[in-house]
């Protein structure tokens, strides 16, 4: 495995229209194979930071590099789509296509690899279908492959989301509050799967969480984000109560950004 930073973020700022400063001078390096959990209250900028990594949000200034290549800059003939292909993402609301079957949802992760025309008509090579099924097996949902996605429980839907990310054969998986909508048991299952693919496949995992206890249980490295800035960055075992207080800050109800992660912006992109 390549040693060195998979992701290198330097001096990242993001201002949203309306004067909201979501990120202020964030710098961060993530090495291959890390399991990094991002902590912070809602509106601290975690979602925006994650979305800058795969170019869903374009930063106001600063840069994000993936394997040494700036994201979305089209440098060395590497397109933003090609970069996104190697970064899987899972979401708090799962974001599955509800009316499609589970298998079709997973195959969405193979869209980059397939010809435009045939894939638009939902025609995928047998090889991709087999791979999608094996990814579903990995998350324990092989037998649900031919059901409609919206017939599954929340925890199962999130596991489909993970399978969709896995078929991308990603280097990195970004998880934006992956367990915030789940019951404690499902949350644990999802976190276990994320840890497993991190350890077995060497896929770098960056997840945002707001549950401190869960984070401490799973994380190897914890990054605390507060008001758009990184305030803590250390190994999970070295985290002190003071750090936690620092991240969540004097309990003052701050003027928070409501966590729509600049949707308007990617909508226009």
């Amino acid at each position: 495995m390549k040693i060195g930073a998979v992701i290198k973020i330097s001096g990242l700022n993001k201002d949203f229209p309306g004067g909201v400063r979501a990120l202020r001078g964030v710098s961060l390096e993530v090495r291959a194979g890390e399991f990094l959990l991002m902590l912070g209250s809602s509106g601290a900028g975690k979602s925006t930071l994650l979305r800058c990594i795969n170019g869903l949000v374009a930063p106001t200034s600063g840069r994000v590099e993936l394997n040494g290549v700036p994201v979305g800059a089209g440098v060395k003939n590497i397109s933003l789509r090609e970069q996104r292909k190697s970064v899987g993402m899972i979401f708090q609301q799962f974001n599955l296509v509800r009316r499609l079957r589970v298998l079709d949802n997973v195959l969405c992760g193979r869209l980059y690899y397939n010809p435009l025309l045939s894939s638009c008509f939902n025609i995928f090579p047998q090889r991709d279908v087999q791979f999608a099924l094996s990814c579903l097996e990995r998350v324990g949902l092989r037998e649900k492959a031919y059901q409609r996605a919206d017939t599954l429980s929340g925890g199962q839907q999130q596991r489909v989301g993970i399978a969709r990310a896995l078929v991308q054969q990603p280097q990195v998986i970004l998880a934006d509050e992956p367990v915030a909508s789940l019951d404690p048991k499902s949350a644990r299952t999802v976190m276990d799967i994320l840890r497993e693919i991190n350890q077995q496949d060497g896929i770098t995992v960056i997840a945002s969480l707001h549950d401190v206890d869960l984070a401490l249980e799973y994380a190897r490295r914890v990054v605390g984000v507060r008001e758009g800035a990184v305030v803590v960055d250390k190994a999970a075992v070295k985290l002190t109560p003071k750090d936690i207080e620092n991240i969540y800050g004097g309990a003052k109800e701050q003027e928070v950004y409501d966590g729509t992660y600049g949707r308007l912006e990617y909508v226009r992109a």
């Binding site: 789509r81 996104r84 979401f91 609301q93 869209l111 980059y112 638009c120 989301g161 969709r164 991308q168």
Partner: peptide, 20 residues
């Protein structure tokens, strides 16, 4: 919009995002 975002995040082409 979350579904569109999720598909864009996979590296899918704009037309694929529309189709799925």
């Amino acid at each position: 919009p979350g579904v569109v975002e999720a598909l864009e995040a996979t590296g899918a082409h704009k037309l694929q995002v529309i189709a799925f």
